[in-house]
Nucleic acid binder design. Structure first.
Length: 105
DNA sequence: TGAATAATGGCCT
DNA sequence: AGGCCATTATTCA
């Protein structure tokens, strides 16, 4: 099975992504299981004030769903998107995954 | 409450 | 250079 360390190495060795994206994905791997983070908070952690930039990076996430992009939620608690989909069955799965990890608002 | 809008920054064309 | 984006805070009715 792939450990988080494997994923991290894959992120670090990827040349086709930008520095900014690397920071986003690595910080995301730092989010512990059962905990969620908002786009704005994640942006703040990597030294960026634009939550939209983070959202864009996640939307184009080449590591989904290996990188736990389901732990990223909007400030109001909505799910916004998952695996490049802003709506659809994937969103429901995202909700389910979060609940399975023991996350609740 | 909810709709509209400005702020904001990285990235794609 | 211009515009898009899986945001967010603010403003107004």
């Amino acid at each position: 099975m792939e450990t988080q360390n494997d994923i991290r190495q894959r992120v670090l060795t990827s040349t086709h992504i930008t520095d900014f994206q690397r920071r986003v994905y690595l910080e995301l791997l730092n989010v512990p299981r059962g905990e969620a983070i908002t786009y704005g908070e994640l942006a703040r952690r990597i030294g960026c004030r634009s939550a939209q930039a983070v959202g864009q990076a996640l939307r184009r996430n080449p590591f989904a769903p290996e990188v736990p992009c389901h732990r990223v939620i909007a400030a109001d608690g909505s799910l916004c998107g998952f695996c490049g989909q802003r709506e659809g069955d994937m969103i429901e799965k995202k909700q389910k995954m979060l609940e399975e990890e023991g996350f609740h608002q």
